[in-house]
Amino acid sequence: MYVLSAIVILTSLGLLLGVALGIAAKYLKVESDPLIETIEALMPGSQCGQCGFPGCRPAAEALVSGAAPVTLCPPGGTSLVEQLAKLLGVDVDLSQTQDQEAMVARVSEETCTGCTRCFKVCPTDAIVGAPKQIHAVVADACIGCKKCVEVCPTECLQMHPVEVTLRNWRWPKPLAA
């Protein structure tokens, strides 16, 4: 008999608390700043951590609270700085910011052992390959996060600047007077 009452009491308690928590979650929801969402959407989203924050969302939160400068994101480049400055209403001297040279990973075919470690860590599935087969990087999908370079046991993965072709060649900025 004791067993039965214990089961009934604990079950009803569980149900009650569950419903209470459900209602609380709906009505007492903590609204997050929509600005954070907007900024997070603007950021590259690769969670690379180059800004010193654990990911793009924490970085966006720091930006909104004013703890981080708008120039924090190296992969975002000048374009992101300009958009952030506009959103947050900050003045920023854009003439000093410089875009990073775009880099992509490339597999050196002589030293690749086909160990598969690199494509397991690639966040964008930019590396293709199979065990004991030479791997290859799909340059269009590579975001230059260098995660594969770190795990490669033979150092056959190296970062190279994006190859300049007629399609992506652009006029350089004129030298200032």
Binding site: G45, S46, P123, T124, D140
Partner: peptide
Amino acid sequence: EHKSEQTKRLIEDR
């Protein structure tokens, strides 16, 4: 911008 959209899609897919 286009690439960053694609990247997001790739990351989500993965």
